[in-house]
Simulated scan of single mutants.
Amino acid sequence: MRTLQLTVDYFVDNSENYTQAVDLLKKGEVVAFPTETVYGLGAVATDEKAVKKIFDAKGRPSDNPLIVHIGTAEEVSLYTSYIPEVAKLCMEAFWPGPLTIVMHAKPNILAPSVTAGLDTVGIRMPNHPVALKLLQTLKAPLAAPSANRSGKPSPTKADHVFEDLQGIIPCILDGGMTGIGVESTVLDVTLNTPVILRPGGVTKEMLEAVIGPVDEPSIEQQKIESTPKAPGMKYIHYAPNAPVYLIDANKETIENAIKQLKSEHKVALLAPESFKDIKVDYYFSFGEAHNLEQMSATLYDALRACDKTDATIILATATTKSGVGTAIMNRLEKAAGGNWFSLK
C-alpha cells in the first residue's frame, strides 16, 4: 500500500487534500491527522469494519477502547445516553481542547470495537484547525487513538507516523508538529466523584477549579482494573526499543550511573538543557528545566530519537508530579515499565 502524505498549509487552499482524506474515510479506510495533543489514526466510529482497521494497523489489543472525536459539541447527545451536569461544565470550560469525557454510550450506535464491550465511551472535541476541519467536512465521528504502532512513543510529527505506518495506512494529513505533545486527559464522569483515568494537558487542578473534587488514582491503582476504561491504563506504552530507566534529575547521580553503565552499554540521556554538558554517548534535551509545557511537547520526539541511535539503555530524568508534570511522569513511568535506575 502506498501511503500518501498530504501537507495541509494554513495559508493556502487545502480543500483538495481534505476531500481526499474524507473520501478515504467514507470508503471505510483509516487516515492519520494532527490534533493539539498527538497525531491520531482515525476511522468512522460507527463503521465496525473501518474501526477494526485501526487495531490491525497499530497492532492494538482489542480490549483497549478508543476515543471518539467530534467536530461540534452538539454531537455529544448523538452518542451518549445522558450528559451529566458535570460533563456540561467541563465541555463549556475545556472544549475544544485536550479533555476526553467518559459517559454512558447510547446502545447500538457506535461500532462495538470502539467501546471494547463497555457501556461507556470517551468523547472529545479537539482544538486543532486540521482536526476540526476534517471532522466538520466529514460530518461523522472519528474513533482515533494515537497514530503509531501500539506500545511505541506517540507521534507528534507526520514523519513519526510515516516511520511507524508507512505502507500500512493509505493517508497522513501533515499539519506540522503538534503543540501539547501528550495525549488528552481522560475524565470519567459516570461516578459520584469524577475520576481522571489518564492525566494530560487539562490538569487535576484545572478540573477542580471548575467542578470541585476529582480523584486521580496512581498507576498501580489503575492496574487493578482488568478491563481498561480508557486508553493507556493497562499496557506498557510510549516505549522506544532500548529499555528506559527513570533517574532523579541530579547531576552527580546521573554521572555515577553513566560510569557504572559505560563498560557494557551505549547510554542515551534524556534530560533538561542544564544537563547537556554531561559526558554520555547520546543526549536529548527535554528543554529548559522546570518548563513542563516544553518538556511535554518534546517528550515523545526525544524518546523516538533514541531509536535512531545504537543506545542500549536510556536514562530519563524525572520531574515534578504537579500540573502537566503528572501527565509527563505518567508517560515516563509507562515507558520505563515503572523501573528506576539504582546505583550498585
Rank of each mutant, 00 (worst) to 15 (best):
N127F: 10
P112C: 13
R149H: 02
A140I: 12
P112W: 15
S154D: 10
Q136L: 06
R149P: 08
S113N: 08
A147L: 07
V130R: 04
M103R: 12
A144F: 09
V102T: 13
G117Y: 01
G117N: 11
S146N: 03
V121Q: 02
T115C: 10
P141L: 11
P107K: 01
A144Q: 00
D119V: 11
I123W: 03
S150W: 15
H104V: 14
A140E: 15
L132V: 13
A116D: 11
K139R: 08
K139Q: 14
L118D: 00
S154E: 00
K152W: 04
G151C: 03
N127V: 08
A140Y: 02
Q136C: 05
H128F: 09
V121G: 10
P153K: 06
N127E: 12
P141G: 12
H104R: 15
D119S: 15
M103N: 07
G151H: 09
P107W: 06
L134K: 07
S113G: 02
L138F: 03
G122L: 05
G117W: 01
T120L: 14
I123G: 14
A105H: 11
P129V: 05
A111G: 07
P126D: 06
A147Q: 01
L138M: 04
K133W: 05
P153W: 00
N148E: 02
L134A: 02
P141S: 06
A105C: 15
V114D: 01
D119Q: 11
K106M: 02
P112A: 14
G117V: 08
A131E: 02
V121M: 03
Q136G: 06
L134S: 01
A143F: 00
M103V: 11
H128L: 11
P112F: 13
K152N: 02
L132W: 15
L132I: 15
L132E: 15
T120G: 08
A147Y: 03
N148D: 05
P126V: 09
G151P: 12
K139L: 05
T115F: 13
A116E: 08
A143Q: 00
P141N: 06
A144C: 03
H104M: 13
K106P: 01
H128S: 06
S113H: 08
A131Y: 04
A105K: 15
A105V: 15
V130T: 05
A131Q: 06
L135I: 04
V130C: 06
L142Y: 08
T115V: 13
L118E: 10
P141C: 07
P145T: 07
V121N: 04
N148S: 06
A140W: 09
V102L: 13
L142Q: 02
L134I: 01
